[in-house]
Amino acid sequence: MTSPKDDSSSTNPQAPQPVNQLANQPTSQNEWPLWEVFIRGQHGMSHRHFGSLHAANAEMAIKNARDVYTRRNEGVSIWVVQANDITASSPSDKGPLYEPAEDKVYRHPSFYKIPDDIGAM
């Protein structure tokens, strides 16, 4: 059995440091990993981002998420994912990513004029 000390000293210094793309810095190497929490509020709804928390592993993250985010029946299902595993678009990509959609008004039903005689469509 390996002692905790051996574990931390054998961390490969060559390994790339994981970076939290949602915030401004890599999470501290001396803290439990950061997890993002997604909760399905009611049956039929999709999971929604609720916040984050620290936990040593996924099971603990789920248990903590239950205590931190669903003390009043706010959820019927919880997802947790390590913050470092999330790839996020960058605010500076806003233009290239979303502007192309702005001039495509014909993608919306309101672009088309349907004669009144036709009725509901």
């Binding site: 949602l22 501290s28 928390l53 620290h54 205590d67 931190v68 003390r71």
Partner: peptide, 27 residues
């Protein structure tokens, strides 16, 4: 008990928010 547990939760929501500004929980 429920109220005091809520206060812990409130502290955690706020620490999470502060962490997004680049300060760690330990700091």
């Amino acid at each position: 008990l429920a109220k005091v547990q809520d206060e812990a939760g409130h502290g955690l929501y706020l620490y999470c928010a502060a962490e997004t500004l680049g300060v760690s929980r330990d700091e």
